[in-house]
């Protein structure tokens, strides 16, 4: 055993999980190497200190909060089905219509000079933008997978989505139960080339996604984005036994295009 190997076994040795043969080699090197002895002693000291780091008990507030939240979720599970906590579409459309009317009024009345009217127009545009986004976010939680896909596709019309929207897409990509929805979310996220958040979600998905055709899509998107951080998860997938052969082919293609 040389110093480098010794280094890599220090933790296991101190944890008592080195195999007998390794342990003998470790001890042998230890006896003959002063600097490694020093390293071991130093690590032992650190281990003692680690042991002294307190494991705190959180206040009762945490459990109370959790139990309240659990009760709410259980309620919601029943109520949601019974009363369909729906997005107030009717009100939303009414608001959108009135915003449109007011804005139309501005244009019919002729564009007035001065900052005030510009501010007001921008404010109205901002409100309708916010409203549109809220409608999209609500639709993304609809119980029909077709409607969730529709909501995801709407995001393609937005030039500069904000973090909330990208997070909603990332949630669909990582957590939606329907794989067609996850696929639509992957494609939507792939459009936002400059968003770090979107890229991170796509890479994370490659780690967790088990559906082969989705894996292939993700590979395609990440290669198109030239996202080098995808190399690690791609290599891992290549080494995983369950990965189907046709996915491995795409992985190999993708890896060569990224290196």
């Amino acid at each position: 055993m040389d110093c480098k190997q010794f280094e890599n076994n220090i933790l296991d040795y101190l944890d008592g999980s080195l195999a007998e043969a390794e342990k003998q080699r470790f001890k042998a090197h230890l006896q003959s190497c002063a600097s490694c002895q020093a390293e071991l002693e130093a690590q032992q000291k650190l281990m003692t200190l680690f042991g002294q780091v307190p494991q705190e008990t959180p206040s009762d507030r945490l459990r109370d909060g959790f139990l309240d939240m659990l009760a709410e979720e259980q309620q919601a599970q029943v109520v949601h089905m019974a009363h369909k906590k729906e997005f107030p579409w009717k009100t939303a459309f009414q608001i959108a219509a009135s915003i449109a009317l007011v804005m139309g009024g501005f244009f019919l009345g002729g564009l007035r000079s001065g900052d005030t009217s510009q501010e007001q127009i921008s404010a109205l545009q901002q409100e309708s933008k916010v409203l549109k986004q809220q409608m999209m976010l609500a639709l993304m939680e609809n119980r029909s997978p077709s409607k969730r896909i529709q909501a995801v596709n709407y995001t393609e019309e937005i030039a500069q989505p904000d973090a909330t929207l990208i997070k909603a897409l990332a949630d669909r990509l990582l957590y939606d139960a329907n794989s067609n929805v996850r696929l639509a979310a992957a494609e939507a996220l792939g459009n936002f080339k400059s968003s770090q958040q979107a890229r991170a979600a796509l890479i994370e998905a490659l780690n967790t996604e088990k559906d082969p055709s989705l894996q292939i899509e993700l590979i395609g998107i990440l290669v198109r984005l030239q996202e080098k951080r995808a190399l690690e998860p791609m290599k891992k997938l290549l080494e995983t036994q369950e990965t189907p052969i046709y996915v491995k082919e795409q992985l190999n293609n993708g890896i060569t295009q990224l290196i």
Binding site: E7, N8, I10, L11, E39, A42, Q43, L46
Partner: peptide, 9 residues
């Protein structure tokens, strides 16, 4: 992990 503990030490 080993690299990090070495850095820590």
């Amino acid at each position: 992990a080993h690299r990090v503990v070495k850095k820590l030490r």
